[in-house]
Design a protein around this nucleic acid. Structure first.
Lengths: 218, 218
DNA sequence: CAGCAGCGGATAGTGCTGCTATCCGCAACG
DNA sequence: CGTTGCGGATAGCAGCACTATCCGCTGCTG
């Protein structure tokens, strides 16, 4: 197929496809003449993957390029691929990490990981991100996040068990590698939205409990 | 205090503080002369809150303005405030929602919410976001997300129960309202990073299980 | 075989975001 | 009384994710 059909079938405008080609998010088609190229189903699929990363996962174009690159570069190393997928959804900004409060929070994270025997590298950027959230809470006088850290970790662990099991259940290695990426990125978006809905529900529920009796306003 | 001290104590550069003032993220100081103004502790606190939203939570400047606005506008309506806080962390992009696949996914979400008796508005943007993730997975031939939807929802519910309990445990109403915001935004960042760490751990653990025997490579 | 839509490739431009820089006249402090 | 810093205003900038335009060519249509 040529670019017009690719555009029609994916819903992505032609100039955007050309942009993705330039940026290396999409492999060039097979040149069939000086100014004609041919794209296959794998191009369509790759394009849909890129759009899912960008539109649903909120990944940047540069991040998406790294992810699709890693998908071929680490075709048989799920842990490396996982690392790239995880860093692609990392926040774009980051706070000042030179304060003593931050270092204390960071120490608390190292401790948590050690306590649980989690097999993660000591320099994981995600550990810094946990410290960021803890330190921000601390500087605003919100110790609750730090206090509930264990419960957050428990919940994360049980979700991760489900998700990793889901990925490893895939027999085909290539499809499994794609699921590493999609599980990381789409799973994040999915869970985040469900957490919001659950917050709405729980808030209403617990607020009602707090004010018993008939004639609850609104 | 004047802007220099505010800058020193918060770590935010003076031009950025001026920008936040212009953008309405920070209330103007009390004018004490034609070109001198005075800021208090509450300005410092607000500034730290704004930076936490932006740097840790990844909220946009416009989103942060809405959140701090809601904090005063809905000082006694936690549910309204929660809605604003939630929409501030919503993804900036969104996919095409006009396809039949998306509508089917959306139906599945309505069903899930109904089954569980979750008290959420039927038009919640978060429900659309769940459908976005499901539909993206579907179009890429990944039914797993949809299959595990119930487990995702269970996990989200148990996390939400902890978090809402944490917020409602605060006796002071003003501090509680701030915690609604911080719980939503920082809680998201915190959990997301922990989920990544748990993925690393679980992946290593389950991969080791899969290849038993001595001399496991690396 | 003429004509015209569409193609691939290249270059330039756009709109938005989140700051950053500069300038001004004035206040405060040593 | 001079230096430093302030507040307020305006302008500028870098990065991102596209979007528009142009060119010569291809290949299908009639």
């Amino acid at each position: 197929m040529r670019v017009g059909e690719l555009s029609r079938r994916s819903g992505v405008p032609i100039p955007t496809i050309k942009y993705y080609l330039r940026e290396g998010l999409l492999a060039p088609g097979v040149a069939v003449a000086s100014n004609q190229a041919d794209y296959g189903e794998e191009h369509l699929r790759r394009l849909l993957l890129v759009r899912a990363l960008i539109d649903v996962g909120g990944v940047s174009v540069a991040g998406a390029r790294e992810v699709v690159g890693a998908l071929t570069a680490y075709a048989d190393d799920p842990l490396e691929l996982l690392g790239v997928a995880q860093s692609s959804v990392a926040p774009r900004h980051q706070p000042d990490r030179a304060t003593p409060e931050w270092l204390a929070a960071r120490g608390r994270v190292t401790e948590l990981v050690a306590e649980r025997g989690w097999l993660v590298e000591a320099w994981s950027p995600e550990m810094d991100q946990v410290a960021d959230a803890l330190a921000a809470g601390g500087s605003l006088g919100v110790p609750e996040l730090s206090e509930k850290l264990g419960e957050y970790a428990d919940t994360a662990a049980s979700l991760a068990a489900v998700e990793v099991g889901m990925v490893l259940a895939r027999p085909d290695p290539a499809a499994r590698m794609e699921l590493v990426v999609l599980g990381t990125v789409l799973g994040e978006a999915l869970f985040s939205a469900l957490r919001m809905l659950a917050h709405q529900h729980e808030s209403k529920r617990q607020l009602e409990l707090g004010k018993p009796g008939p004639g609850i306003a609104q």
